[in-house]
Design a protein around this nucleic acid. Sequence first.
DNA 1: TTTCAGTCTGTGCACGTTCACAGAACCTTC
DNA 2: GAAGGTTCTGTGAACGTGCACAGACTGAAA
Lengths: 331, 331
Amino acid sequence: MKRPTIHDVAAAAGVSRGTVSRLLNGDKYVSPAARVAIERAISETGYVVNRAARSLVTQRTGSVVMVLSEPHEKLFEDPNYSTTIRVAIRMLAERDMSLVMMLAGDEGDRERVVRYVRGGHADGVLLMSTHAGDPFIDALQSGPPAVSCGAVIGRESVIPYAAADERLGGRQMTEYFVGQGRRRIAMITGPMDTPGGIQRLEGFADVLGRKATKKLIAHGDWTQASGERAMSELLARTPDIDAVFVASDLMAAGALAALRAAGRRVPEDVAVGGFDDSSVALSTHPPLTTIRQPLAEVAQATVRLLLTLIDGAEHVDPVILPTELVIRASA
Amino acid sequence: MKRPTIHDVAAAAGVSRGTVSRLLNGDKYVSPAARVAIERAISETGYVVNRAARSLVTQRTGSVVMVLSEPHEKLFEDPNYSTTIRVAIRMLAERDMSLVMMLAGDEGDRERVVRYVRGGHADGVLLMSTHAGDPFIDALQSGPPAVSCGAVIGRESVIPYAAADERLGGRQMTEYFVGQGRRRIAMITGPMDTPGGIQRLEGFADVLGRKATKKLIAHGDWTQASGERAMSELLARTPDIDAVFVASDLMAAGALAALRAAGRRVPEDVAVGGFDDSSVALSTHPPLTTIRQPLAEVAQATVRLLLTLIDGAEHVDPVILPTELVIRASA
DNA sequence: TTTCAGTCTGTGCACGTTCACAGAACCTTC
DNA sequence: GAAGGTTCTGTGAACGTGCACAGACTGAAA
């Protein structure tokens, strides 16, 4: 039993293919009588358009590809992903478009993505967590519109993006520490080739100025273990620290462990601030004071940018959304 | 500047469309001379096949749709998702297939999925975390092959799946408690319409037999808050508990908070066991003894089942993979 | 009546591929 | 040299849709 085609619908409704096609594509110039007949025929036959045939003639695929630029080993649970995926699916579904996922972890992956996109298999590209100087961004330039969820360092001008104001978040936490009368404020950053790594530190430095010395700054790689290590480093280097701003909740959990091991009380001896307001922030002891990012809003803005470009806009401006301080027991 | 077609490649290589098509589809009967000429022409022109045109004639789309059956509000970070998504993308990419994502949170979503699948837009369906008695599984029966990542309760016979042996996990943790000489062992379960909710409890009951009384069992909904609430309930009901098996790490984090509030020491007074071995298990204090699920292996097995069915197999058997006890400080 | 604009409809063609088929070229064997 | 099997190649016909175009019908204005 074959799937019904537009011919079958037309025949059942007693009209021609063209009329059915017009109705399907929201064209005006379809008489009320034809309209009801066709709608009935569609539901009777269970017709659904063949996207392949349509895209063959329209040169559009009705799909957007989301590219995950994480190296394979790092399967860490980034809440950003699940939120963005869901928001994107939902917004695309409203326009009857679908989301296809691709990985860009190694060279082979990236080549595959470029081939896919260049081959015209997607109407747009949604980049996730792309690292600084990623060469394959250039390869994407000539194809369909591409946007990034989160800033692409060094390429802000070439690829539109939506992101949280990470720098503001850094300032918010640091100002909070200062306002509490903390005097020796340290920071554990993320990798310095990511926006979160760079910009959260910038916010920290904005507030502290020259008091943000190298001795007070340690680097992690987002993992809990790296947070623990960095905290130990800091304690060894500058024992009189009374506050530490950690660039992610997960690393902050590591920092808490190191502080506990060193016999420091939190928040009495050392205040700890995280970033992300992830579920980890609630499961630590004490729960983390942290910075909440407007994840869903960023995702929405990203998709909106992409759709605007797909609709033919020449240029869009980046969108930067404010973060928010969430106060809990750790600071 | 138009995209090159198979005609352009054929012309550049001095052969006909048919020969190029044969090479592309791995057919034998292509002479060595033609082969090199075509391969050169392909790389010179930058040709990449038009999937829409191909799928129009082959009736295959080269894509698999992953259906996320979570209600919208619950955007909780399930590590299962990110692992399965990555594994699926990777395995599909090897066969030059792509993964498209859809949501099935409400009735409208589900209808969209059914239309999409029935419309022949996917060669297979990969169900994630489908709840018991989900009616839309039946709607999927008549379409392309569908498999589930995780058991589908009450439908094990109708839809193939791969899953972790949740029941075994429940036994492992409970036996560990028994072996340690714990006498009053309680359990906090997940929702009783999910495999994780039901089967982890079954494992618990397997070991404890009639000692697993109703008084010792409380129910949560996977959230941290529900874990905390359930733990308080249990303590009020049965104050002499000396161990509790919590069906997820996140809920276990909540249980730890409740125990701390009640002045119980962990693990001295009460041993706590979690489930999942998620990142939360490491960030709690003390770190959680828990059950590790072979997430990646389950994902691989799921995709393999689906591909086997897509390749024409009539029937496949479900795959159930063993869990593993991970001992940390909480028990 | 004629003219014209507006509304609605049907038809042929193109999109880029695969597949079945026919046939050419080559080798082996009688 | 005829016959028969491989191996290889080109060609026409689909697949299901959107779009441009031509034309039919309406009603209003000249």
